[in-house]
Design a binder for these strands. Structure first.
Length: 887
RNA sequence: GGGCGGUUAGCUCAGUUGGUAGAGCAUCGGCCUUACAAGCCGAGGGUCACAGGUUCGAGCCCUGUACCGCCCACCA
């Protein structure tokens, strides 16, 4: 970038690409693993691995931005930072995508066979994995690509296997029959939290079940009549006087002509339906529990395709939905259908394919989580702190109510369960190395066809990515990781399980802190989804507005514990900010020596000139605030502070204030140049974690002082050092006085419709000698920024009879109004100003007249208020004097 | 049913130990003032959802109400 031909508007595309390429080529973000481990000088994050075949959505963009801010910031603090990237194999999701593709060729996975199918998935992964990588790069994420991992790569597979075997040997993994959530479409078991409960309109049928002794019937209510063929009991509440005399009797189940018992259980809600509940242990989670409790028969009537089995009387072979209709029809014919009511209830759906879930009894693998969960609970907040704290309760609540984790999935894509069954003796063999023979000598071993839940491998991510189970320097230096940054939607799926595995296998929690960030919603607050069509595609936004704009927008709205409502206009809005920065840099470069020439060194601790002192003072505050905000995950505060400083203070005031210095030349110019270059350079450093690209470009273009060695890459530069001597609240106060004087003139000009081009004469009557000195010292600034022809600073100066006046910081600013000026407008303006002052004074005096306040409030507050009243009185007097002249 | 969050300017939101409300966008008026019209200058706009309580003082703390949203569980 050469300063002669800087483009007037910021064009992000090429500049971003240049820096992305550079950072990748130079491996800027690959850390030197320290020899000796010490948590103080290292900082590490593992990326929440996105689905390898997926697309980045705006939530990922936020997630990546926040992690990148933490990483870049901690690099600036001098720490060795490791950010591990990677992708997740996403078992069911990925398999579904590939199966859908096969379906287009008219094939199923069974046509290919297991091995060929898995090969197809790998091909798919190779083809699309690059896509997600590109998107992470586009966001500017400063990850270490040399350490990229995939949940199915060799090392991670080894880790998964070791964990499975060890947990099995510790009896924390077991195999058992259980009623699980079965997706008839995906043909697999789903964990409880993989089931979406969606409201569904349906009916509730009241069905008469004849009593076996012919003494009448008992009417039950059900939303699933087809499951009645698997009923093995009817339950009523033991204290329900309508029915409890029937307990112990039997029902003759229609169609099957089978006798089933009537049982009593307080689980039954007397108010609901008819007060009598049919019990189908094999097709309902609650009935399953009842089945065990009452030692009922378990009868499956629906198979794993959702078809009625051969034991379903005349309904055998029908699909369950078809069977429902037929059952109802037949009941009607038999006169057993008492009533049909419309009813809306929530029905479990497969979170991947949206098919209705069928509770299904089968043999599955489970992790016994109770003890693991307890340890994970106890570790928070002592070893791991959760931000914002409001999620603590949710975390506890979930762990307290956790059930054993079903980890087997009946799909092909994933980590295959390392368990073999001996054909001869039936022994189950679970080993890290593939077994050849059973202990009985038989070599006819068949491997369990199931694979593991995707979250099983994700749960190991913080240590498996660092080389576990090998002992590696990475583990020594970077485990536990510093923070996990994620959305709350996977707090349970993932975070809690990483806690369990980390504690169990590493003996240490996987992260010091967990930061739960917002969910990104659309402008109306709705969740973004492809089907609603309200998604904002990060790549599209990057193309239109640049990565920095997108990142800054997300950061500025990332207030803790609150969702983000995002719309494209906002991103466009912050593009203006990027452009503003760009132009400030353009201005600077036009007024600074070239990089080759270098700056004249100036001692910033001894700079004269209230505007320089002021901006340096503000810069010191900004440095401290930014650091504090980022440390506390208050990203929006950091963004807002930077925005305000750059736009309102640096650009609107400071750049304007130094224009006269630049024109004056000599010492004034040299000082202004040095302060400007310093302020801009340090501001770029502060902003860099949020906006990596534009700051890198500007940084590289700015000149240093003569002879200084330039670091061309801001990404490797340290956070700007503090300059305690530049903390000058006194200078800030003086600056405010000058600013207020300028604003007063501008306000008079605007309200009285005086052309901005017209140079005015102005008089300032300072309130005291100190004010006079300050104003006099900065006379030139006032003249230029207020566009004055002349300025008189004199407490004794006479104001012309017709003039406009305003009091600012106790000083009276007077603009003589010559010729045809609207006197009424000025009178109105003065009245308005007076009313404002009087209102404030009335409030203050009211407060001070309250003896309780004066007694109990801190003395300094009371003092401050009293001073303010005096100030107001003073200003009012001055304005009244002017106002009197108009009458 | 259990839990959590929200309600502040027209819109979107800040507001960190309670001291009398801020920003951006939008609106209105004026400006091509050689970094930026993606800009500059100025202005208007709020009973902080409602009702009580604590306090000298409440947007902030406590209690309750209303509406909105989310999470978990369950709904025969």
């Amino acid at each position: 970038m050469s300063q002669e031909n800087l483009p007037k508007g910021y064009e992000p595309a090429d500049i971003e690409q240049k820096w992305r390429d550079r950072w990748e080529r130079e491996k800027t973000f690959t850390p030197q693993v320290p020899e000796s481990a010490s948590g103080d000088n290292t900082y590490s994050i593992v990326i929440p691995p996105p689905n390898v075949t997926g697309n980045l959505h705006i939530g990922h963009a936020l997630n990546l931005t926040l992690q990148d801010i933490m990483c870049r910031h901690n690099r600036q603090l001098g720490k060795t930072v490791l950010w591990v990237p990677g992708e997740d194999h996403a078992g069911i999701a990925t398999q579904n995508v590939v199966e859908r593709r096969l379906a287009q060729e008219g094939k199923t996975r069974h046509d290919l066979g297991r091995d060929a199918f898995i090969e197809r998935v790998w091909d798919w992964k190779e083809e699309y994995g690059e896509n997600i990588r590109k998107q992470i790069k586009a966001m500017g994420a400063s990850v270490d690509w040399t350490r990229e991992r995939f949940t199915m790569d060799e090392g991670l597979s080894k880790a998964v296997r070791k964990v499975f075997v060890q947990l099995y040997k510790e009896k924390l993994i077991y195999k058992g029959d259980y009623i699980i959530n079965w997706c008839p479409r995906c043909h697999t078991a789903l964990a409880d939290d993989e089931v979406d409960h969606l409201p569904r309109k349906g009916h509730i049928w009241h069905i008469r079940y004849p009593l076996a002794d012919g003494s009448g019937h008992l009417t039950i209510a059900t939303t699933r009549p087809e499951t009645m063929l698997g009923d093995t009991a009817v339950a009523v509440h033991p204290e329900d006087e309508r029915f409890n005399h029937l307990i112990g009797k039997q029902i003759r189940l229609p169609f099957l002509d089978k006798l089933i018992p009537i049982i009593g259980d307080s689980y039954v809600d007397r108010e609901f339906g008819t007060g009598a509940l049919k019990v189908t242990p094999s097709h309902d989670h609650n009935d399953w529990q009842l089945g065990f409790k009452h030692k009922l028969e378990f009868v499956q009537v629906i198979d794993d395709n959702g078809m009625m089995k051969e034991n379903a009387a005349q309904f055998a072979g029908l699909h369950k939905d078809e069977a429902r209709k037929k059952v109802v029809e037949e009941l009607e014919k038999l006169g057993l259908l008492e009533d049909i009511k419309d009813y809306e209830n929530s029905v479990g759906h497969c979170y991947r394919c949206k098919e209705v879930i069928e509770p299904h009894v089968s043999t599955q693998w489970f992790v016994a989580v109770r003890s693991l969960a307890q340890k994970s609970r106890d570790a928070v907040p002592g070893d791991t702190k959760i931000f914002p704290e409001t999620w603590l309760k949710t975390y506890y609540n979930w762990l307290d109510n956790i059930r054993d984790w079903c980890i087997s999935r009946q799909i092909w894509w994933g980590h295959r369960i390392p368990a073999w069954t001996c054909a001869a003796c039936g022994q189950l063999i679970v080993e890290e190395e593939d077994p050849v023979t059973c202990s009985c000598g038989c070599s006819d071993l068949s491997r369990d066809p199931d694979v593991l839940d995707t979250w099983f491998s994700s749960a190991l991510w913080p240590f498996s990515t660092m080389g576990w189970p090998e002992k590696t320097p990475e583990l020594d230096a970077f485990y536990p990781t510093s923070v996990l940054v994620t959305g709350f939607d996977i707090l349970f799926f993932w975070v809690a399980r990483m806690m369990m595995m980390g504690i169990h296998f590493m003996g240490k929690v996987p992260f010091d802190e967990v930061y739960i960030h917002a969910l990104v919603r659309d402008a109306e607050g709705k969740k973004m989804s492809k089907s609603t069509g309200n998604v904002i595609d990060p790549l599209e936004m990057i193309g239109k507005y640049g990565t920095d704009s997108l990142r800054f927008t997300l950061t500025a709205f990332a207030a803790m514990g609150r969702d983000i409502k995002l719309s494209e206009e906002r991103i466009d809005g912050y593009r203006h900010f990027v452009n503003k920065i760009w132009n400030a840099a353009r201005f600077a470069l036009m007024n600074l020596p070239t990089k080759e020439e270098g700056l004249e060194k100036v001692d910033l601790n001894k700079v004269e000139g209230v505007h320089h002192q002021w901006i340096l003072h503000r810069l010191e505050s900004l440095k401290q605030e930014t650091k504090k905000s980022i440390r506390g995950y208050r990203f929006n505060d950091a963004a807002q502070d930077l925005y305000k400083f750059i736009w309102s203070e640096l650009c609107d005031w400071y750049l304007e204030l130094i224009k006269p210095d630049m024109q004056a030349g000599g010492e004034a110019k040299i000082t202004a140049q040095y302060v400007l270059a310093t302020a801009l350079r340090e501001t770029m450093l502060l902003l860099h974690p949020i906006m990596p690209f534009v700051t890198a470009e500007i940084w590289a273009a700015l000149p240093l002082e003569k002879g200084a060695k330039a670091n061309p890459d801001i990404a490797t530069e340290l956070y700007p050092a503090e300059r305690p001597a530049c903390v000058r609240p006194d200078a800030a106060e003086r600056m405010v006085m000058v600013q207020e004087a300028i604003v007063a003139v501008r306000t008079i000009r605007a309200e009285l419709n005086i052309a901005p081009s017209l140079r005015l004469k102005a008089i300032i009557r300072p309130q005291d000698a100190d004010a006079a000195i300050v104003l006099e010292a900065n006379r030139n600034m006032i003249e230029v920024l207020a566009r004055l022809e002349s300025l008189t600073i004199d407490s004794q100066a006479q104001a012309p009879r017709i003039s406009s006046s305003q009091v600012a910081c106790g000083n009276e600013i007077i603009v003589p109004l010559e010729g045809a000026v609207d006197l009424d407008a000025e009178k109105a303006r003065l009245d308005k100003e007076l009313a404002k002052l009087e209102k404030e004074r009335a409030m203050m005096e009211g407060k001070l007249s309250n003896p309780n306040y004066v007694q109990k409030a801190p003395a300094e507050l009371v003092e401050r208020d009293r001073a303010r009243v005096e100030e107001l009185k003073n200003a009012e007097e001055k304005l009244k004097a002017v106002r009197a002249k108009f009458e």
